[in-house]
Amino acid sequence: MLAPLLALSILAAPAAKPATNAICPVLGGKVTEKSKTVVVRGREYRLCCGGCDATLAKNPDRYLEKDGTPKNAKK
């Protein structure tokens, strides 16, 4: 009974907005389209290394503006 409910919740989940960042929001390293990604608050972010995913997910307010823009993005 759990499997059908799980499948429905996966299908019903809205797609995350695709990543557009050019540098890692955590460490500021360069990222590419092949970089690892993480979804935070319904938006995808490219990361420079494997450790940044947990860091960003754990404390997004430190690295992201309220609108989801990385704080280290050039303005």
Rank of each mutant, 00 (worst) to 15 (best):
V39I: 15
S9H: 06
R41H: 12
T20I: 13
C52F: 09
V40A: 11
P60R: 03
K74Q: 09
L27G: 15
P25R: 10
N59A: 12
T32L: 11
A16I: 06
G28K: 14
L27S: 13
L27R: 11
Y45A: 03
A3T: 08
V40S: 05
P18Q: 12
T55N: 01
L2F: 04
D67R: 01
C48T: 07
L56N: 00
T32H: 02
G42W: 07
L64C: 06
K34R: 07
G42D: 09
V38E: 02
G29M: 14
K58W: 07
T37F: 05
K71R: 13
P60A: 03
L11M: 13
A19N: 14
I10C: 03
L11P: 07
G68P: 04
E44Y: 11
C52D: 15
V26N: 04
L27W: 04
R43T: 13
V31I: 09
G51V: 06
A7H: 03
K34F: 09
L8S: 03
A7P: 01
Y45S: 00
K36R: 01
K30C: 05
T37L: 08
I23R: 15
L8D: 09
A7W: 06
G50T: 06
S35I: 00
T55A: 08
K74F: 00
N21V: 09
G51K: 04
T69V: 09
T37C: 08
G28Y: 06
V31G: 04
I23Y: 13
S9Q: 15
C49M: 14
A19P: 09
L56W: 00
K66A: 10
V26H: 05
K74V: 00
C24S: 14
I10G: 02
V40Q: 02
V38K: 00
L6K: 06
T69S: 10
V26F: 07
C24K: 05
K58I: 00
K58D: 12
